[in-house]
């Protein structure tokens, strides 16, 4: 028996969103009478943090405290149209729509404040703490709450905004495949260290070191959540998951979580992440969506590390102990590759 250490690498890019466009997102923003802002979306929060990140985007754009913003998803009677949460389109498409809606609401807010302060709206700025002040003269200020009250009850003005972000539908060319993916690309590179048991084919992932470029970490903790959870899912896809162990035969398909395998809490892999931020021009504050791409580099990095450990190319997923053992039998044993 021997345990063989292996190290593998992979790097990827990920196109954000549905690349041929035609996937609009809308947002509506309005203020309460006392200057809190409600954002209505039809985007879905399925755990990725849609409500939280759009709330931060609205707060930043409006220039008001994040506590004064609340995001409501998704009610088709009150929320405007949105295609949905998939293809990492949420941050990018919905985020842009929220910026537009919030920008318009901000404009109304500054005009209302300007009327109260008797200055030009273009001379005003927000401090992000609930105040609007004259640029360069912080003492000449009015609170957002008072502004909203004045707009509502004195000026007859709404502090509201609407936003849509659309990349119009296009197509791929039939002959050359020419197309405009339009969106930005997120990037990642990742090193996996693992061990392979050459008697059973069992693999134990020991460590992950990674670099993810996400445009901008709109909320660093949400990004971290995605990257750690996503890498776990990548390990799971690489080594465990399948609805059809005998693919393409449909026999013995798992029907519960006991036989549909995913690594448990006893298999947490230390994951050292570096987050890089190169803002994308058309993304909200430059942020690309980290949610989907984070699992992708793990799969090939695991396969490459297994080759490094025992000299077997595992080209069919998931890489089960059986596939490794069959490879070892075919090769006449482990053939460890160069130590990296």
């Amino acid at each position: 028996m021997a345990i063989h250490k292996g190290r593998g690498f992979a790097c990827i890019n990920y196109p954000i969103g549905m690349n041929l466009g035609g996937d609009p997102a809308q947002a509506l923003v309005h203020s309460t009478p006392d200057g809190k802002f409600m954002v209505a979306l039809s985007a879905i929060d399925l755990g990725q943090g849609m409500k939280s990140v759009t709330r931060q985007i609205a707060s930043e754009t409006l220039g008001v405290p994040v506590e004064d913003v609340y995001v409501d998803t998704a009610d088709s009677d009150t929320g405007p149209h949105d295609m949905g949460s998939f293809a990492s389109r949420g941050t990018h498409r919905v985020g842009n729509a929220v910026i537009r809606a919030s920008a318009e609401a901000r404009k109304q807010m500054l005009e209302a404040a300007a009327e109260e302060l008797e200055v030009n709206a273009s001379d005003l700025d927000t401090d992000g703490k609930g105040n609007i002040h004259v640029k360069g003269a912080p003492s000449r200020s009015i609170t957002v709450a008072d502004t909203a009250m004045a707009a509502q009850f004195k000026q007859g003005r709404t502090l509201a905004g609407r936003g849509i972000f659309l990349i119009p539908p296009s197509d791929a060319d039939a002959e050359t495949g020419e197309m405009t993916p339009v969106t930005c690309f997120a990037h990642a590179a990742l090193v996996i260290d693992l061990e392979v048991d050459d008697e059973t084919g069992d693999v134990e992932v020991k460590e992950i070191n990674s670099a993810y470029e996400v445009g901008r970490a709109l909320n660093p903790k949400l990004v971290e959540q995605q990257l750690i959870g996503g890498a776990w899912m990548g390990v799971s896809h690489a080594l465990y998951e399948t609805t059809e162990p005998q693919y393409p035969k449909r026999d013995h398909g798992p029907q519960d979580f006991n036989t549909y395998l995913m690594p448990g809490p006893g298999q947490i892999v230390p994951h050292n992440i570096a987050v890089l931020e190169r803002p994308a021009e058309d993304a909200p504050f430059g942020g690309k969506g980290p949610g989907e791409m984070c699992a992708n580099p793990v799969l090939p990095a695991v396969a490459n590390a297994i080759y490094n450990a025992v000299g077997i190319r595992c080209d069919r997923l998931p890489i089960t102990p059986e596939k490794i053992l069959r490879g070892l039998r075919a090769n006449g044993g482990a053939r460890p590759q160069q130590v990296r």
Partner: peptide
């Protein structure tokens, strides 16, 4: 230097 973007604000939900 953004005010809210880039902050580890707790999740709304």
């Amino acid at each position: 230097t953004l005010k809210e973007i880039g902050k580890p604000t707790i999740r709304q939900d």
